[in-house]
Structure formats: structure tokens, C-alpha cells
């Protein structure tokens, strides 16, 4: 139990706060085609791609919860959506144990698309109307593309954040 609390959980919080701060101060004020790139989500999907679906889901939950606490969305909504995103990206680990960067990026993009798309759909489900518009057709590809581009750069941080070490293949020398 202490290992759970003081291990990756402690790393998730400061990294998550820093990511949220960067999201608020940099990515929110420099939109691309009026779409705000989701740095926190990119970190979540990178964590998923690095650690698998369960770690991705937990990273999404924690970082999404910070997002919810900071914003006006119902607490748990973005946490759930990002949890789905992280989990989706993490499925790359079920296919390839050590994915190449471009495979990880691809899954990160899919995970980011799921995470970003989940927010309006979950909002709709709990009664917050008006989030599902045709604008999603522009938003989702841009957010997913940005996550794919950021994924290789964020993978080392995400790996450290969720407590995953790269496998080292040892050559048997006779």
C-alpha cells in the first residue's frame, strides 16, 4: 500500500500539476485553428502507451481529476474521459511489448481522439447539452494529431511518471 501511495501516485501529481499549468498558460492561449491542443491528454495517452491500459486509465483518472478540479466540468467527467483515452492508448502494450515510436504515436492519437471525444459524449449523458457539434470534426483530428506528435517526446516522462522501466534485452553470451 505505501508503495502505491508514495510511488507513481506521488509522481503523477506534480507532473500532472505542471502539465495542467502548461495547458492553461501555453496551450490554451495559443490555439491551432481555434482548437486548444490538449497537453494533459497527450501526457495521459503517452502514459498509456508507455504503461499499458491500466496505468493509462489511472494516469487519465488522476490528471483528468486535476483538470476537473481546476475547471467547471463536473468532477470526474474529464477524469473518466481521459481514463478512457489512456486506457485506449495503453492497448498498444497488449499488442507489442516494446512498441516503436510511431506505433506508440498512432495509439496515442487514437487514445487522444477517444479521450477528447468522450468529454462531450459523457457530458451529454449526464445532461450537459450543447457540446456535441460539427466542430468536433475539426477538434478531434487536431487534438489527436498533436498528441501523436508529442507522444515520442512525452514517453520518457510518462514512463517515469507511471513507474515503468524499459525492458533491457540481455544477449546470452556463452
Amino acid at each position: 500500500m505505501p508503495r502505491v501511495l508514495f510511488g507513481p501516485a506521488l509522481r503523477l501529481l506534480p507532473i500532472g500539476l505542471l502539465a495542467l499549468s502548461l495547458q492553461r498558460l501555453v496551450f490554451a492561449v495559443h490555439p491551432v485553428h481555434d482548437v486548444k491542443l490538449q497537453f494533459v491528454l497527450a501526457l495521459v495517452v503517452a502514459a498509456g502507451a508507455a504503461g499499458g491500459p491500466d496505468r493509462g486509465a489511472v494516469a487519465g483518472f488522476v490528471l483528468g481529476l486535476l483538470y476537473d478540479l481546476n475547471g467547471t466540468t463536473p468532477l470526474g467527467l474529464v477524469a473518466l474521459a481521459y481514463g478512457f483515452g489512456g486506457m485506449t492508448a495503453g492497448y498498444v502494450r497488449t499488442l507489442v511489448s516494446e512498441p516503436q515510436w510511431w506505433i506508440a504515436s498512432f495509439f496515442a492519437a487514437v487514445g487522444a481522439a477517444v479521450g477528447e471525444l468522450s468529454v462531450p459524449f459523457l457530458g451529454q449523458m449526464i445532461g450537459d447539452d450543447g457540446w456535441i457539434t460539427s466542430r468536433l470534426l475539426v477538434e478531434i483530428p487536431i487534438v489527436a494529431g498533436a498528441a501523436a506528435l508529442l507522444c515520442p517526446a512525452l514517453m520518457p516522462i510518462a514512463r517515469w511518471m507511471v513507474g515503468v522501466k524499459r525492458k533491457k534485452w540481455k544477449v546470452m553470451v556463452e
Binding site: G60, G76, A79
Partner: peptide
């Protein structure tokens, strides 16, 4: 657990 926690919080 994640999903249920989120639903509870929401």
C-alpha cells in the same frame, strides 16, 4: 475502479 470512482464523483 477508475470508472466507478469517476461515476461516483460525477
Amino acid at each position: 475502479l477508475v470508472v466507478l470512482t469517476c461515476l461516483l464523483l460525477i
